[in-house]
Design a protein around this nucleic acid. Sequence first.
DNA 1: AAGAATTGTTAGCCATGGCTAATAATCTCA
DNA 2: TGAGATTATTAGCCATGGCTAACAATTCTT
Lengths: 165, 165
Amino acid sequence: MTAMTDPKPAPATKDSTAKGAVSAHMSAATQADHFRQVRRARETETIEDYVELIADLIDETGEARAVEVGRRLGVSSATVNKMVARLQQLDLVTAQPYRSIFLTDEGRAVAEKSRKRHHTIVEFLLALGISEKTAWADAEGLEHHCSEETLEAFERFSKTNNVGK
Amino acid sequence: MTAMTDPKPAPATKDSTAKGAVSAHMSAATQADHFRQVRRARETETIEDYVELIADLIDETGEARAVEVGRRLGVSSATVNKMVARLQQLDLVTAQPYRSIFLTDEGRAVAEKSRKRHHTIVEFLLALGISEKTAWADAEGLEHHCSEETLEAFERFSKTNNVGK
DNA sequence: AAGAATTGTTAGCCATGGCTAATAATCTCA
DNA sequence: TGAGATTATTAGCCATGGCTAACAATTCTT
């Protein structure tokens, strides 16, 4: 194998295409855009997870305390604390020291949107025949990476293939 | 609104349930597990993106150069360089200074797995009626967050609702 | 009301994965 | 061959989002 020492085993005109090929479908620039989009989504997903959970806690138990947020997220209180500070800067929550956390209008809006997406995805996975357990687990990861177009398709599908519910 | 000064607006026995409620479905511990799982997935997804892309480049053009990886990922060469060092530590690639990047057997295996998942998801989205453009964009984000169970369901669906292809 | 238990805060640490700017190596071609 | 273009490397910066440990405030219980 000369490959290790030869920096250019195959000059390959740059437009060649092969099996796993993605270049058959898009330019490098388009692909880069997709990846950039994913990276952007990754930045907001932590924030959305926190906000959504805070909303859940307020609606379920009447208030959101840092300990409980940490417990549900599987994260230390110190981490929650730091994140809450960030959420305040972003005007998504209000909080005073040693008091519970409240959502701003903007935070509430973000929470509702996340919640709706989450629900759409869980319903969809269930309609597809996925088990409850997996549906809830996967939804947590998938919810931040679905475009509007895909979410709409999911809703349409659930509506028609609506099983038990 | 007394809420801002009252740390406990509603003692709420801790088992209460409401509209957005997730607690109706699982314990805090289970929910924490889901989030932990998502965080673990986030750690591997960057790695998988790089490895998958390197494999694509090797198969398409005969070699994977850092510039091109950067171009397609929408990232600087410096970043690629640092990441390649990490991939080497993980035994996923081999690389010598100023030479192109090669996959180890393990790297190749990771790439194949990612590629397969990616393909499964694109096919699925297309079968669902999503546009090509969106299917490719969404797949990039979704591929790291699907359990085996869900991927299998996607495959089953594509097989039966296989449109054009 | 005092002490114990719980909860919140802060400081300081770490890895990840981006970036720019400066420098070095390699490659191309006139 | 040697100059210019391309590509790679390195150093140093930054934000994010985790962590532990030490300490402070609050709340609960007796």
